[in-house]
Design a binder for these strands. Sequence first.
DNA 1: ATGAAAGCGCTAACAA
DNA 2: TTGTTAGCGCTTTCAT
Lengths: 333, 333
Amino acid sequence: MKQVAALAGVGIKTVSRVVNHEANVAPATASRVWDAVRALDYHVDLQAGSLRRAGGRTRTLGLLVSSVDNPFAGAIHRAVEDAAVERGVSVFTSSLDDDPLREAYAVSAFLQRRVDGLILTTASPRPQYLGAVLQRGLPVVYVDRKPVDETLDAVTSDNRAAAELATAHLISHGHRRIALLADRLDIGTARERQRGFLDALGHAGISTTLAPMVTELHDAASAQVALARLLASEAPPTAVFSAQNLITVGALHALRVAGLQHAVALVGFDDIPLADLVEPGVTVIAQDPQQIGRVAVERVFARLEGDTSPARHTITPTKLIPRGSGEIAPAAE
Amino acid sequence: MKQVAALAGVGIKTVSRVVNHEANVAPATASRVWDAVRALDYHVDLQAGSLRRAGGRTRTLGLLVSSVDNPFAGAIHRAVEDAAVERGVSVFTSSLDDDPLREAYAVSAFLQRRVDGLILTTASPRPQYLGAVLQRGLPVVYVDRKPVDETLDAVTSDNRAAAELATAHLISHGHRRIALLADRLDIGTARERQRGFLDALGHAGISTTLAPMVTELHDAASAQVALARLLASEAPPTAVFSAQNLITVGALHALRVAGLQHAVALVGFDDIPLADLVEPGVTVIAQDPQQIGRVAVERVFARLEGDTSPARHTITPTKLIPRGSGEIAPAAE
DNA sequence: ATGAAAGCGCTAACAA
DNA sequence: TTGTTAGCGCTTTCAT
């Protein structure tokens, strides 16, 4: 900046004023400064600036998602980025991998870089770092899952109700022996979805002894193995509720390998790409990750602009998309 | 840091030494400092530090990809992140949207935040910002595409050869009237893929008048419309080479709607999720985005560690995965 | 092994 | 409208 000032023949503060679009600069002076900026390929050092700037804003956000290569997270990320660029804010993104240690590490990395706000997916029911974050007055919004016991801004789906709807959908098509394939139960959403599943069985008066539940599934491969085993058992399920996108993919593979994709019904939680192109089409409960991201980032910016209203937990809508796999009737016994 | 120093009863420099794991601190002193750090939930300000630090490193990287919600980009991103966390480096990610303006803006945002290195996908054949970047000695590695005329580190696939392979595969199954569906030709990879397509036709002695080529396609919807139109024409293609993942998805929809998915052959560039579950399976040329990201980030870190060897253009392997759609023979005429 | 002082690039506060 | 000075939180250099 000093060099620019020298080249433009002005004081350093004038350069600062110009590059920050402050008022009270003569147009002629401004254009001389811009010329110097271009001549030197100068880019302000936002980091140095934020050191002194009132409020210490860095024009930077931290985003923590399950994994940056998961399509659900990708959609959230895109929504966050779009709102951020509009405001000249850049986004640090990290992957959680459902590991509380990795979560703590990522948040700490964000804190060390003095982000202005956090959008977090959490693996910990009670994250240790929250105290430090809140005490600093840093806006935090949880997406997809939220810590228990805490009144915080959060944007999630109603996992329990949606899972109940999915299961009821299968029941309404005549199924009674319905399998649940779910993620690790230490993840809140997995628990919620299991509860919804059980709610639906309860309302229909179906004994849970009929319902094989396999949990602690974490990827497509383990889900495929689990379902293959169920299908080969003596009382195989006539329908499956797969409670997460990767699990649905594994379930699809297992059904395909067993040649049962037209015989065993399937409803998945979370939409998956090409779900409409497989045969039969995959019936899913679709969340709206785009909207989750959008609402979350707006919440962060609102907080940054001084909104001090009480914490808000926004529930974004889900919808059941029937495509065929969820409408298969059970084989007559 | 001053507060920590006060609480621990040491000088500020000692705190700096401890949190940066420097030598020459008495174990007893160090543990007193750590206690204070924990008591105050203190996190170093890396930004302030890098202001004075030799080399001015910020432990930060800038990554520019097509779009953060594209699975191809997600895989690259993940590989970059994994290598970065290992080194305590955080990653800024932005989406390019194949817009040179957005590209320039993103790079400028990275520069203003003083990233240590850049991993870029480019939409500009000759990016303006390169001068400023190179002059600063910032390591840049291009992924997926690279600017022309520049000797720079880059990691790409051999798009031309892979496209030729895909097309030759269709020809070897008896096709002569093969359609090309491609992206905007101002994108280098789209041009390369078209060249490879033409190479294969040339080698087989097939006149290009037989080959309907639709370019400037940019998403699934436009690709679907384009293929639907071709299929309805008086001399419809018996095979299709779709030169990008979203275009492949659009092509699949068009074939499905026309009921021709078992009649018209299809090979896609880039693997797509669930490609093996649709009927018939989708034959694709698969790149290895994970490896592209891994090689690129290693290159950046090597440069940061002082590697001054000449720029290297790494070609990562692609492979043709036959799954059914590419092995359909043309209908007898 | 520890600390004091200077200064990184910038912006706030104030002066001219 | 413009410039000067101090100081943000840290690391460097140098002294102890």
